[in-house]
Structure formats: structure tokens, C-alpha cells
Design a protein around this nucleic acid. Structure first.
Length: 744
RNA sequence: GCGCCUUUAGCUCAGUGGUAGAGCGUUUCGUUGACAUCGAAAAGGUCGGAGGUUCGAUCCCUCCAAGGCGCACCA
């Protein structure tokens, strides 16, 4: 339209998401992501971002959490709150090390051939570059978080806080060194927490062998070399002639040995023959039996999963290949009774590599979950009733009380139940890992007297007990959740001196994360926070589900169904992706996300754009003013009244974190009420010179209200429209520079 | 073993104590200015089954069926 006088005033008929980055730059430069810069902001509203793992590119899961947290942050900001959304990145210890080792493997290298410092340095660089990529991705998603406060879980100030907590807990006896069965992954060469293992059903062969006068059953003949205890239930009539402690000379795999009869209720009468031998070094159940009766234990399998010299001719063999050979030998010796090949049982495996966990007895650090916290520890913030009820509460009790009291609200009832059920069965948490990437455990051991020396400043030169100068640094690192569990208070405490962030922004209001890390992370954050600060870390927990593909399949690289959020943004725009992620998505439910849905939401963004185009083209040169002052039409008040009612609904939904309902109401109102009915009517009204002026006002005012309500969901298209209105002088001068900070 | 969840239109999912909604899809019609990334209209559901509470249930309770999930775990 070369002959149109106001050519630059004609908006293109399609919304172009390519301009999103410019809008983001404007926001960022404005400084308003930093709540301290917000004019006249009221009470703080804080969300601590679950720090993305700095080991991989962003996926749709990130897009989802960003969308939800950004909607809430923008909403609260527009409601006058001093809204802080604090970003960060997680070094993600074991996870990152696994990713990095895979990378090494591809290059034909291995960490076992590297110096620890060299390895650490390479992972550090890898993580730094990933952090930059992630930050860029988060920005493209429209995150209105305060980058000036961004933190990394390995920042010196964070580590210091983590160490302080460890020291406090050590003095309170809440972390301790325990020498017992741990979950050893022979592939990754580290101990794992129970949560980091899973059970897989396998069908194996179950063998019966003659063990002196008994027939014992086992699925693992290869562990049985050292078995010199035979256990049965005290009430088992079949074995009533044998007494506890009785010695028997028997013939076993590698010759004669003296066996001892143990009576223990752990042996189930219904299982197998009711008689079993035990291998305490490689089974937690057996370990408990051995400890109850003070029995000897011996290691049979080394840390790589190979048999030790006790296995004689089998020594050095991988347990897998040794099994059949050992059975063969027992057959030759006439000790074999029978085998059943349909034995179904669950084997514990590493959650990362599926390798079968080989229980090993070795010293690890543990956190006591159910032990009463000594009265010297911080307990101020606990509700009095909860304290009374719990007596001297443990870490677990504090978390349970927090939920029961409602100091921490888990938004969906379903997850509250799941949480409580998990808390009931809580066992001590093993927090040490034999990996290199992570926060080192700040402990030294005296080589001469074995004294444990807590040394959080790395200054100890001599053993305080025996004076020896021979100290050995604990080579292990913390479970990454030990540090991220402290994140809500640590990320605020570690900010610049004088900013008083912890005082201002803690406790936070909302924790938004995936339900899959409810136990790993949320539960631990609650416990750490009460312990360290006496307060809950957050008032509410909103759990989102997994983003799946259109066939409800989990997205994974191996299936090749991974959708790259940045690719989606390139084709459909951030707003379309964001709206698709919250539309029709109730909290906690998984989200099947088809491209069609994103496309549909892109149509909506475009619809909004064209609504604005129509309104602006038909209200050229008009500035919004108070219609009531000059007596508007009845229609106008009806429309404005309806928008006011819509706003009330949206506020109710958003306050209750029903983002999907707010989104649906807005969608339907904008499209079916405002566009299809009101704008269609307006075409006639605008022809009428008498009603024209009012109608222009109504159209503009309604548009401004609607983009305001939609802004948290679709920040880019709404801000673009707002800036266009501003440029054209449609907005009164008292309106703010950005829609982002316009108050509802 | 302990516990949790789901079952609503062809598909994917919202929702409510008073006889149901959206997106996508389907059918028919309609394009000289907001938008074909559109408009007008339509088809399509006894809200898994049985029983109960209620004046009234898809929504509350019980049982059943199918599917899914979490925790724990016996040699």
C-alpha cells in the first residue's frame, strides 16, 4: 500500500514472534526484573527457581516450569507485589558426572585414567558453557527472573553455607559416619541413596543345595563361599531339634567348615525350605541378622563385581560368569538338590545405568531422619503444637508437622498423600558419594587414631586428639541433593552483603517443580529449612507433571521424540508454546503436547494481534479517558462490567494457582465474546457518528484490560500491542512504560 | 506387601451437587479490508459398571472392572 499516507501505522496482518527478543531486551534493560527497582511495590512474593542442571540443553520440562513460574511472577508483580524470581543453576553432582563420563566414553577416554583435578577442570568448563546456553534459553522463554541475583550451587558463598549446615548437623549428631550396607553401583563406582536405586523384576534360577543336614535355597550361589551361618525361624517346627548357636561340621563349596545355627525371625518359614545361609557383606537383610547376633562378616565380591581370593579358583571372575561354574562344582560334589528356573524377584538397580546394585559394607556418611534433634538446635520457628505433638522432633517430624499444620501446603491433595506416605517409611539418608564432581565433604581423618576431624575451612593441620600430623582428606563428595536441599535459604543468604535478601524474601511463597523430585528435593528442602532457619522454606508447593509426546510417551533421546523448545519457539513463538503448556493442564497431571495444540495457540496469539489491529485502526488518534465522566452508553458499561467480572474470575483462579482455568476463561472471552460478538457489533456502531466516539473508547479500554489480563500468559504479544498503543498515543500519560509493570 | 491416581465428544484433556465444556479432527456454507493462523452453522457424550446418600449425582460414599503410578521388598 504505497499510497497509504500512514504506511508505518498499518500493522502487519500476522503477529511475528521474531520481535520477541527485542521486547525481552527492553524489559531486561528496564531493570524491573529486580524487585528492588519496582516503584511502590508492596509485600514481597518470592519464587526460587529450581536450578536447571547445568549439564544438558533445555527441554520442554524447562519450558513448562518457566511458563508456570513466570506466569505467577508476572501476575504477582502486576498485583503490586515485590516479585522476586531468583534464578540459578545446579552443578547436579552425580547426574553431571554421568553425562560427562558418557561424553568421555565417546572420545575413548575414562575418568579412571585421569587425575581428579584434570577431570574436575574439564567438567567445570563443560558446565560453564551449558550454563550460558541454558540462560539464553530461559530468556527466550520470557523468564522475568532477576538475573542480577543468579546463583550457582558451587558458588563459594553457597558452599560455605552448605558446610555450616553440615557442621551444625555433625555437632547435633544428625549426620554421622556409618559402617553398614550401602548401595554400591559397580559401574559408577559409588554409593547411592535408596532413592537413586530402583527395582526391576527379573526371572532367574533359584537353586537348592545341601548345606550339612539342611537344604538351603539361593538365587546367588556365587556369594555363598563364606557362608558359615544357617538361619531359621525360631518357631519353625521342622528345625526344632537344632538350637541357636549349635555348631555343625559340614562340607561346602571349597571344603569342610564349621557352621553355626542361628534362630532369627527374619527367616520366613514359608519361603523356600525355611532355612538359609547368610552373606552379611552383600545383603542388607543378612547384615541386620549378623549384627543382631554379632556374627562375623567377610567380603566376597570386590568393588568391581569380581570374586575375591576367598573364592579360590573362582577368584577374579565376574560374578555373572562364576555362577554357573560354581553350580557345576556343587553338582560334582553332590551338594546340588534342584533348581527352579521360574523364580521371579525384584533386583535393585542403579537408576542411571540399570546395573545391578551390589550391596557392600563400607563407611559412608548418613543423615539421621528420625533421630530427635537435640534441644540446642534451632527450633524456634516450629509451631508450638507441632513441637508438643512430636516431643523432641526429628527432621522427619518437622517436615510432617509442617504439612499437617499447613505451614507448607502441597497444592494437590494427591501429592500431599504421596508425600506423607513416603515420610512414614523414611530411613536415614546416605549423603556421601565416591564421585569427583561435587562439593567435597569437609572432613579429614587422622591416619594414626582414626579421629574424624570436621574441617570446613580446610585449615586443620594436626589431629586434635593425638596430635598426629598425618591427616587424610575425605575423598568423597556430597549427594547433590544435600546442597540443593538448602537452596531456598542458601540462594538468598549468599546474595550481596547489605542487600538483606534473606531478611526480606524468606520464607518464600512458592516452590514450583516436578512431582518426580518431591522426595529428592522438596522433602529435603523442608527439613533443612526448619533445621537451619526455624521456618518453612516456602508456603506452597505446586507440582507439575511430565511433558509427554502426543501419544503420551515419555520424551527421550532414544525414542527420538524429544521436542526442542527453542525450535518450537522459532516456528510458533514463545507465547504459543507457553499458552499450550498451561491450557487444559491441571496441576500435577502429565501433559501430552502435540504440535497441533501449539499451532492452535499460535492462532490465538494471532487472533489477539488482529483484534488489536482492528481496534487501533478504528480508533486512530483516540486516547483512553474515563468514559463515565462524559456519560458512556449502556453497552459500554455492559462490556466493561463483563471484563471486570472476567478479571475477578481470573484473579480467583490465579490466586488458587489454577492457571489452566484462568487461561481457558481468557481464551474463551477474548475469542467468542470480545472478537466474535463485540467487535462484530462494533463494525456497525462505528458507522454511526453519534455512538462512534464511545465505541472507540470502549474498544480501546477493553483491549487494554484484556492484554493486561493475558500478559502473564502471553507476555510478548501483549507487550508488543501495549507498546504499539503507547506509540500511537492511545494510552494516558500516567500509564507505565511497560505492560509488565502495569497494575491490575 | 503398603499407598496413590485415572476412566467425560473420534483423539488429547478441562470442569461442576441441579441433566456437560475446550483444543484438534469431521460435515455444510461463506472470502473486495482485523484475522483463511478467518467467519456462520452442524454432527457427536445414558460423564467405565453396579449399588447407596440426596428433592436431585458425572461430581459425595461403597463395591467391581480396566489402565497407570509411587514406596518397600524374602534368601
Amino acid at each position: 500500500m504505497a499510497d497509504t499516507p500512514d504506511r508505518d501505522r498499518t500493522l502487519p496482518p500476522q503477529y511475528d514472534p521474531a520481535g520477541e527478543q527485542d521486547i525481552y531486551t527492553l524489559w531486561e534493560r528496564s531493570g524491573y526484573f529486580n524487585p528492588d527497582k519496582l516503584p511502590d511495590a508492596g509485600e514481597p512474593y518470592t519464587i526460587i527457581m529450581p536450578p536447571p542442571n547445568a549439564n544438558a540443553p533445555l527441554h520442554l520440562g524447562h519450558a513448562l516450569f518457566v511458563t508456570v513460574e513466570d506466569i505467577v511472577t508476572r501476575y504477582q508483580r502486576m498485583r503490586g507485589r515485590k516479585a522476586l524470581w531468583l534464578p540459578g543453576f545446579d552443578h547436579a553432582g552425580f547426574e553431571t558426572q554421568v553425562v560427562f563420563e558418557k561424553k568421555l566414553d565417546k572420545e575413548g577416554r575414562s575418568r579412571f585414567g585421569m587425575q581428579r583435578e584434570e577431570f574436575y577442570k574439564e567438567v567445570w568448563d563443560f558446565v560453564q558453557s551449558n550454563k550460558h546456553l541454558s540462560e539464553h534459553g530461559l530468556k527466550r522463554l520470557g523468564s522475568s527472573c532477576d538475573w542480577s541475583r543468579a546463583m550457582f550451587t558451587l558458588d563459594e558463598r553457597i558452599v560455605k553455607i552448605v558446610y555450616e549446615t553440615f557442621a551444625m548437623m555433625y555437632r547435633d549428631g544428625l549426620v554421622y559416619r556409618g559402617n553398614r550396607t550401602c548401595n554400591w553401583c559397580p559401574k559408577h563406582q559409588t554409593n547411592l541413596a535408596n532413592l537413586e536405586t530402583k527395582y526391576e523384576e527379573r526371572t532367574d534360577t533359584f537353586y537348592y543345595f545341601k548345606y550339612g543336614p539342611f537344604t538351603i535355597g539361593t538365587a546367588r550361589p556365587e556369594t555363598k563361599f563364606g557362608d558359615k551361618y544357617v538361619v531359621m525361624h525360631p518357631d519353625d517346627e521342622r528345625y526344632k531339634d537344632y538350637v541357636h548357636g549349635q555348631k555343625l561340621e559340614i562340607e561346602w563349596i571349597n571344603g569342610p567348615l564349621t557352621a553355626t545355627v542361628i534362630k532369627d525371625a527374619a527367616a520366613e518359614m514359608e519361603f523356600g525350605t525355611g532355612a538359609m545361609t547368610i552373606t552379611p557383606w552383600h545383603s542388607a537383610v543378612d547384615f541386620d541378622i549378623a549384627r543382631r547376633h554379632n556374627l562375623a562378616m567377610e567380603q566376597i565380591i570386590d568393588l568391581r563385581g569380581k570374586l575375591l581370593p576367598i573364592a579360590q579358583e573362582f577368584a577374579g571372575m565376574k560374578i555373572g560368569e562364576a555362577r554357573s561354574k560354581i553350580v557345576e562344582k556343587l553338582k560334582e560334589k553332590g551338594l546340588f538338590v534342584e533348581e527352579k528356573t521360574d523364580y521371579k524377584h525384584n533386583v535393585q538397580t542403579c537408576y542411571k545405568c540399570n546395573t545391578i546394585i551390589e550391596p557392600q559394607v563400607m563407611p559412608q556418611w548418613y543423615m539421621a531422619m528420625t533421630k530427635p534433634i537435640p534441644s540446642s538446635a534451632t527450633q524456634d520457628g516450629l509451631p508450638a503444637e507441632a513441637l508438643a505433638k512430636a516431643g523432641r522432633p526429628s527432621l522427619r517430624d518437622m517436615a510432617v508437622a509442617a504439612i499437617e499444620k499447613g505451614e507448607v501446603e502441597i497444592v494437590t491433595e494427591r501429592f500431599r498423600k504421596v508425600f506423607m506416605h513416603w515420610m512414614e517409611n523414611l530411613e536415614d539418608w546416605s549423603i556421601s558419594r565416591q564421585i569427583w564432581w561435587g562439593i567435597p565433604i569437609p572432613v579429614k581423618y587422622c591416619e594414626d587414631c582414626n579421629e574424624i576431624i570436621l574441617d570446613i575451612e580446610d585449615k586443620a593441620a594436626a589431629c586434635p586428639k593425638c596430635g598426629s600430623g598425618k591427616l587424610r582428606q575425605d575423598p568423597d563428595t556430597f549427594d547433590t541433593w544435600f546442597s540443593s536441599g538448602q537452596w531456598p535459604f542458601a540462594a538468598l543468604m549468599a546474595q550481596k552483603e547489605g542487600q538483606k535478601d534473606f531478611e526480606t524474601y524468606f520464607p518464600t511463597q512458592l516452590m514450583e517443580t516436578g512431582w518426580d523430585i518431591l522426595f529428592f528435593w522438596v522433602a529435603r528442602m523442608i527439613m533443612f529449612s526448619y533445621y537451619r532457619t526455624g521456618k518453612p522454606p516456602f508456603a506452597q508447593v505446586y507440582l507439575h507433571g511430565l511433558v509427554r509426546d502426543k501419544d503420551r510417551q515419555k520424551m527421550s533421546k532414544s525414542k527420538g521424540n524429544v521436542v526442542d523448545p527453542l525450535g518450537v519457539i522459532d516456528t510458533h513463538g514463545t507465547d504459543a508454546l507457553r499458552f499450550a503448556l498451561v491450557f487444559s493442564t491441571a496441576a500435577g497431571n502429565d501433559i501430552p503436547l502435540a504440535e497441533d495444540k501449539i499451532k492452535g495457540m499460535r492462532h490465538f496469539a494471532n487472533k489477539l494481534w488482529n483484534i488489536a489491529r482492528f481496534v487501533l485502526a478504528n480508533a486512530e488518534g483516540i486516547q483512553i479517558h474515563d468514559i463515565e465522566a462524559d456519560g458512556g452508553t449502556l453497552e459500554a458499561f455492559k462490556m466493561i462490567g463483563r471484563v471486570a467480572r472476567l478479571k475477578k474470575e481470573v484473579i480467583l483462579h490465579l490466586d488458587a494457582l489454577r492457571l489452566h482455568e484462568a487461561a481457558q476463561e481468557l481464551y474463551q472471552f477474548v475469542w467468542y465474546e470480545y472478537a466474535d460478538k463485540y467487535i462484530e457489533e462494533s463494525k456497525k456502531e462505528l458507522q454511526d457518528e453519534v455512538s462512534k466516539g464511545f465505541r472507540q473508547q470502549e474498544l480501546l479500554q477493553t483491549l487494554l484490560e484484556l492484554i493486561t489480563l493475558l500478559h502473564p500468559f502471553m507476555p510478548f504479544v501483549t507487550e508488543t500491542i501495549y507498546q504499539e498503543m503507547r506509540k500511537r498515543g492511545a494510552l494516558p500519560i500516567e500509564e507505565p512504560e511497560f505492560l509488565m509493570i502495569r497494575q491490575w
